[in-house]
């Protein structure tokens, strides 16, 4: 006998219906030759979720994204993406993950146009042996429109401002038609107005295209209002949950030390703030 499902089975997901887990860290640790970067991470990210990853400099945020891309196998534990161990991630899996890397300084003299840079995002989807077709060019145009850069098609990438380059790289990630979008500090190095435009764009993509988004930032105040869940990292996963659950004085003090301040309006101020 089939019973009608009660409306809110899971209190945590009361306001959002998310699909099955796409990313599953299970007691996973990652290390560089110089030392551990992430330890004993257990975290599931569901299809259509928006997770913000926060933590001080060097806490392993970038490493977490590199791991999801399959660029770093876990030393212990496991990491599954699309139900596939990240060590065995195939090219067609990777093609479904859009990535905005942290280090995006472009050699201003590198000969590449905006169009060429965005078209590169199609490489995985087009596959080996084939050349980009009409459909790919249309997708590139569309991605550039999404980020408001359609008038810069034939411009040299190196001649654009930091914020414009940022939008081009987001367009490249979008041109992949990804299911998962990984964004590493998408707002650093750009002016406040552009920052808000970029964040609005990300929010819109999440809502309209139901993209699964993992956004990394050291700026807690910027992502707290956007993300459905926050993951607070410092090599280990210190806290996971809604902004209310994670951004408490006790938890923040444990990660950031006594320099942390929370204002009445919920703003977080880290006194020792030498990030870049």
């Amino acid at each position: 006998m089939a019973h009608p499902r009660p409306a809110h089975t899971h209190p945590h997901h009361a306001d959002h219906e998310h699909g099955k887990p796409l990313i599953r860290f299970d007691h996973a640790s990652f290390r560089y030759p110089q030392g551990p970067a992430l330890e004993d991470i257990t975290l599931e990210i569901a299809d259509g979720e928006f997770v913000g990853v926060i933590g001080p400099n060097g806490s392993g945020k970038t490493t977490m994204l590199r791991a999801i891309l399959g660029l770093m196998p876990p030393t212990t534990g496991s990491l599954q993406i699309f139900d596939c161990a990240c060590q065995n991630l195939r090219c067609h899996h990777r093609a479904r993950i859009g990535y905005l890397p942290q280090k995006r300084t472009v050699d201003p003299n590198f000969p590449i146009t905006v169009h060429e840079a965005v078209l590169m995002g199609r490489s995985g989807a087009i596959g080996l042996w084939k050349r980009p077709g009409k459909a790919d060019l249309a997708i590139v145009r569309h991605a550039l429109e999404d980020v408001g850069m359609e008038d810069y098609d034939d411009h040299p990438l190196g001649a654009l401002s930091g914020g414009q380059q940022q939008r081009v790289f987001i367009a490249r990630a979008l041109a992949q038609h990804p299911q998962i979008l990984l964004l590493d500090e998408p707002t650093t190095g750009i002016d406040t107005t552009t920052q808000h435009n970029v964040l609005d764009l990300i929010q819109r993509l999440h809502e309209e295209l139901h993209l699964t988004i993992v956004l990394v930032s050291h700026d807690i105040n910027l992502i707290a209002p956007l993300a459905e869940r926050l993951a607070l990292l410092k090599t280990r996963l210190y806290a996971l949950g809604s902004a209310k659950q994670v951004l408490t004085k006790e938890i923040l003090a444990r990660v950031y030390g006594p320099q942390i301040l929370t204002t009445d309006t919920g703003h977080v101020i880290v006194a020792d703030h030498h990030h870049n």
């Binding site: 990777r94 590449i112 995985g124």
Partner: peptide
């Protein structure tokens, strides 16, 4: 000529190429 798009991507950013599904 056959792998022009892969070689160009590699020249621009090898890690990014890898991450986007280019071997």
């Amino acid at each position: 000529a056959l792998f022009a798009k892969e070689f160009f991507f590699l020249a621009f950013d090898q890690e990014m190429a890898e991450a986007s599904g280019v071997p």
